[in-house]
Structure formats: structure tokens, C-alpha cells
Design a protein around this nucleic acid. Structure first.
Length: 562
RNA sequence: UGGGGCGUAGCCAAGUGGUUAAGGCACCGGUUUUUGGUACCGGUAUGCGUUGGUUCGACUCCAACCGCCCCAGCCA
């Protein structure tokens, strides 16, 4: 029977957790946490972490805390905490009552610092940043001890209190842990615990002018919340000895840290610093620019949380550095959108078609299926008349052998309408085709001819008189290079930006039903891709974002043949 | 060159001494189709960084070597 069960997703983290639960560690409880710093918006890389942390907690009957790691008042803002909460909720996760801030623990952390001073495990150091850096030593050579390392407990206590009281200038003193200046682990060479920062904090205001460092905060925060598995990315591996040192020195609940490889994806940048740069330099319109890999941007672009969660499931979790193919994300998106998106017709690059044998002034309403993947989605009426628009690229005057679409003398089907045959193409003085003349077969109404004859192609179309004008924004990858961070000699990562990441179509023609949408839910423009209404939409003018194109084997074949 | 990690197909990734080395994406064929979409079928590692060793048997154990990533913020 067991063989018939679907295999549980297996990765090294779940294996560790499962073993702990089995062994009864911490009474079998599983508590994880997602700990963003509120200094920017979340991106798809954070989504991986969120899915791991909340996912594991869910699977093992535990819980996941949302904790804001707000120990640096210079960079953190309330705007970001609200944005982060929106994003986590949107992704589909719920932290319940368990929302915390590292700043909630400032008093406790301060008390613990005094405890460590009293035990001779911490001291106030008067060295400047440069001096500390210089004395840390080389990777292969021991550092040198601070001349202030052996101050008396009383003096340390006094100085630390006066640091807190604001008696000293920023940068003039720090509280450091007294560990080992010769440790092969650089993090253990008397790391700074507290620095003086005369900045007001987004939550504690001006209560403090000394702030704890990440290393002195994170493990204890985990410990206070009884976090059993503190899961973070690989670059924190080096911090684990220090994480453990503080917990041991303090004798508090033994949370443990585990690390996995952060997400990298082709044609994109996933570092808050880089993304912030794009926002600040105006390369994109904001954190929610639909080209951004931020959750806010992806949401606006039309990505669904289901697609992102599926992507996170499929990429797996491991410790090897990796670069995930962007195509996998698009696959997950299309897979989800295909099931849920209602179909409509819209023409992005219109060329007029006149059906010469269709009665002038007549309008028929033809039934169109809303979603062939979902019978429950019903059908709608689409107006058809003598003058229509079709996609310019669906006609070729001298088509190559593999081109199945409209051409002089050729018959094709207009989706849900009629078979039409092209009789002539009107051109302007420069030889550009400006209008097509066709005839239709009245017997083929709905899209099938009674004599059973076949056509090789079905085109989307919009009736000219009833068409509504719309703006459509077409997006492409933000970076032109597969590895966005691979910089050529003498260039910067900004040089890797894709100059064509945004194309605005100002004169798209959409069917009337699309103009009445009133929802930002995903729709499919038949044969073109998935789209959604953008927040820039006004009463007067709909604005659509192209979420992702449909798979297009024809375009691919063309590209391949040059 | 100190420390911490990692190397299985183009990209992810299972595999923990005995299986024809899972699965997905991408790619290549084909079937169905009123979306050149979807769905479905099939193909794609004599090989697991390299070289030795242990063993009846190694992707799995051992050794050496090679390569890549991270760490010297009073950032997180």
C-alpha cells in the first residue's frame, strides 16, 4: 500500500525535520520563521524561502512565524513591513498571531548583553571601524586583540550604560563579544554586538541610540520564539558558529540553523540591492513594475500565487548553487493560467479585412466558448460584421511553405465565425498592405463547413465597428544576459539590461466583452498569451499587461530558420 | 594559500553499498485539436568532477587531486 502513496517531496531539510520529529526533539514540535528585513520588497527568491518555511511548518503540523529583522534603523521603514505582509498573505500563507519584530526583543537583548559583560564575555571597545577591521587579521593569519579587551566588568558596565544613554558619538564605541581573535572563523574574532546609531527606529522611535547587530539578535530571537529549525540561505553558514556561541553563552533555548542555496534565475537579478537600484535610478517605474521579479511586480503583471508556489515546489531545495531556467517559471504560470483564464479575442497589430460578400450594415452575434479547459466557464456572444481586424502577421502575400495562415487565394477560419478566402490585398504607395478583401462562406457559420472541407489555420479577429481601443504593454525579460550578473570587462551589470523589456501597443483592438472586464483576473487573448488589466486602467482606456505569451512553436521555428 | 559549502543530462533535482541512475523544465519526433495553445504518446546520462583504493559489487565508503561559490560591514 505504501508504494501507492505519492512520494512526499524529499529534500535534505525535510529529512532533517522528519528525523527530529521522529526522535522527539523539542517534543516533536516544529516551529520555523520567515525573517525579512523591512528594507525593501519581497522577490521570487523570498518566495522560495517562504514556501520552505511555511511549507515545512504546515507539513509537520507546526507553525511559522513572521518576524521582521529590524535591527538597523537607518534602512528600515513601515512602508516595507506593510508591503511584506501583503506579499506573504497574497502568496497564500498565514502566520496567525505569530507576528514579531526583532525590535520587540531590544530590552531582553540589552539585559543579556549586561549578563555577558558580567560574565566577562563582552567588552566595550573604543576602536574605530577601520581599526577593528585592520585588527581582525587575514583569513590565514590571526587577528590582534583590542587594547580595550581587558577592561574591568565595572568599567564595561558603566561604559555600556553610558553608550545607551547617548553620551558617546556614533562610531566611537562598540560592545564586542570576547571570543577568540585567532579563530579560523572570522565571525568569531570578537564580533561587534552593539553599535551606536543616533537614528530613530521605525518602531522604537528614539528610545535607543545603540542597536544590536544581526548576529547578536537573530539566534536569540529564534530562541525566544522557540524556533526549532531556523532555515536560511547558504551565505549565513559562516555565521552558524556565532549563532551557536550566543545561545550557549546565554544558556537559552537551543534553536538550530540550517542553510539552503538561494534562488538564482536566468535573465533576472535577485538581490535587494540591485532591485532597489533599478527603482531608485528610474530604470523601472517602481517596486511593482510588472517587469520586476518582486512579488508586487509579478502580482501586477498577472502571476498567480498558485503558479509561484508550484514553481517553488518544482525547483526543489538543496545546497548546490544553481541558476534556475526562467522557462520553468513561465511553464508553471501557463499551466495555471490555462486552467483558469477566460478566452477573448484581441488584435494587437490590426489590419483591416473587408468581407465583400457580407451584407453591409449587418451585425451577427456569434457564440464563443469562454474556456475550452473549463466547461463551467460558459460562452459569450461576439459581434461579427463586414469589416474586421485581424493580426497583421496573420497575412503574407508570398507565404513560405510552412505558413498556414491567410494569403491571397487561401481559405482560413475566423474563430467561432466563418471560413473566409482572401481575394486581394490593397497596398499604399510604399507597397505596404493596408487592407485585405475577402469573401466568406455563409454555410460555414460557427466555424465548420457542411461539406467537411478543412482549413489549416484559425485566426482571431475583432469586428471593426464594435472594437474598443486599448493600450497593451508587452514585457520581455529585464536582462538580456542569461546570467544578469556576469559583467563584461569595463562594463556594469546595468549594461546587461534588456532595452526591449517593455513594448507599449497603443492601438490594440479588443472585443467589447474585454472592455467590460472590471476585474484584474487573468484572461487569455486567443493565440497571443495571457493578459490582465493593469492598475493604470482608466474609465476611458483599458490598459492590459501581457503576463506571458502562449507557447509558440511557429515563432520558434521561424526564429530557428532565421 | 585560513575557514565554511558544493560538484548526478542544456537547467533544476532524487538517489544514503546490489534497481535498466527517479521526476520536472528545455529540446527533438508523433497523435488529437475551431488557439501553430492545451492534452496525450515516444525519444534524450553505458554515465554520477578526476584519479586511485576498499568491496563479490561503488553515484553511494576511503584517499588524493581538480573546479565553483561564500566569509575579513559598527549591513542583513
Amino acid at each position: 500500500m505504501a508504494d501507492l502513496e505519492p512520494k512526499a517531496p524529499s529534500d535534505f531539510l525535510r529529512t532533517i525535520v522528519a528525523n527530529d520529529v521522529k526522535a522527539g526533539t523539542h517534543g516533536g514540535s516544529v516551529i520555523t520563521r520567515f525573517p525579512p528585513e523591512p528594507n525593501g520588497y519581497l522577490h521570487i527568491g523570498h518566495a522560495k524561502s517562504i514556501c520552505i518555511n511555511f511549507g515545512i511548518a504546515q507539513e509537520f503540523g507546526g507553525r511559522c512565524h513572521l518576524r521582521f529583522d529590524d535591527t538597523n534603523p537607518c534602512r528600515e521603514e513601515d512602508e516595507f513591513v506593510e508591503g511584506i505582509k501583503d506579499d506573504v498573505r497574497w502568496l497564500g500563507f498565514d502566520w496567525g498571531e505569530h507576528q514579531y519584530f526583532a525590535s520587540d526583543y531590544f530590552d531582553q537583548l540589552y539585559a543579556w548583553a549586561i549578563q555577558l559583560i558580567k560574565e566577562g564575555k563582552a567588552f566595550v571597545c573604543d576602536m574605530s571601524g577601520e581599526e577593528i577591521s585592520a585588527s581582525r587579521g587575514r583569513a590565514s593569519a590571526a587577528g590582534t586583540e583590542s587594547p580595550w579587551r581587558n577592561r574591568s566588568v565595572e568599567e564595561n558596565l558603566d561604559l555600556f550604560e553610558r553608550m545607551r544613554n547617548g553620551e558617546f558619538d556614533e562610531g566611537s564605541k562598540t560592545l564586542r563579544a570576547k571570543i577568540d581573535m585567532a579563530s579560523p572563523h572570522l565571525q568569531l574574532r570578537d564580533p561587534v554586538m552593539y553599535r551606536i546609531l543616533k537614528a530613530s527606529h521605525h518602531r522604537t522611535g528614539d528610545t535607543w541610540c545603540i542597536y544590536p547587530m544581526y548576529d547578536y539578535t537573530h539566534g536569540q530571537s529564534d530562541s525566544l520564539e522557540k524556533i526549532t529549525h531556523s532555515i536560511c540561505t547558504l551565505e549565513f553558514s559562516d555565521h552558524r558558529p556565532l549563532y551557536d556561541w550566543y545561545i550557549q553563552a546565554l544558556g537559552i533555548f537551543p534553536s538550530h540553523q540550517y542553510e539552503f542555496a538561494r534562488l538564482n534565475m536566468t535573465y533576472t537579478a535577485l538581490s535587494k540591492r540591485r532591485l532597489k537600484g533599478l527603482v531608485d535610478e528610474g530604470v523601472v517605474t517602481g517596486w511593482d513594475d510588472p517587469r520586476m521579479p518582486t512579488l508586487a511586480g509579478m502580482r501586477r503583471r498577472g502571476y498567480t500565487p498558485e503558479a509561484i508556489r508550484e514553481f517553488c515546489k518544482r525547483i526543489g531545495v538543496a545546497k548546490a548553487d544553481s541558476m534556475v531556467d526562467f522557462a520553468l517559471l513561465e511553464f508553471c504560470l501557463r499551466e495555471d493560467l490555462n486552467k483558469r483564464a477566460s478566452r477573448y479575442m484581441a488584435v494587437l497589430d490590426p489590419i483591416k479585412v473587408v468581407i465583400d460578400n457580407y451584407p453591409e450594415g449587418q451585425v451577427e452575434h456569434l457564440e464563443a466558448v469562454n474556456n475550452p479547459e473549463d466547461p463551467g466557464a460558459g460562452a459569450r456572444q461576439v459581434p461579427f460584421s463586414r469589416e474586421l481586424y485581424i493580426e497583421r502577421e496573420d497575412f503574407m502575400e508570398n507565404p513560405p511553405k510552412q505558413f498556414f495562415r491567410l494569403a491571397p487565394g487561401r481559405e482560413v477560419r475566423l474563430r467561432y465565425a466563418y471560413f473566409i478566402t482572401c481575394t486581394s490585398a490593397v497596398k499604399d504607395a510604399d507597397g505596404n498592405v493596408t487592407e485585405l478583401h475577402c469573401t466568406y462562406d455563409p454555410a460555414s457559420k460557427g466555424g465548420n463547413s457542411p461539406d467537411g472541407r478543412k482549413v489549416k489555420s484559425t485566426l482571431h479577429w475583432v469586428s471593426a465597428a464594435e472594437a474598443v481601443d486599448a493600450e497593451v504593454r508587452l514585457y520581455d525579460v529585464l536582462f538580456a544576459k542569461e546570467n544578469a550578473m556576469e559583467v563584461e570587462e569595463g562594463k556594469t551589470w546595468q549594461d546587461n539590461l534588456n532595452p526591449n523589456s517593455l513594448t507599449v501597443v497603443n492601438n490594440a483592438k479588443i472585443e467589447p466583452a474585454l472592455a467590460r472586464l472590471g476585474s484584474t483576473a487573468a484572461v487569455q487573448f486567443e493565440r497571443l498569451g495571457y493578459f490582465c488589466l493593469d492598475t493604470d486602467t482608466t474609465e476611458a482606456r483599458p490598459v492590459f499587461n501581457r503576463t506571458v505569451t502562449l507557447r509558440d512553436t511557429w515563432a520558434k521555428a521561424q526564429q530557428a530558420s532565421g
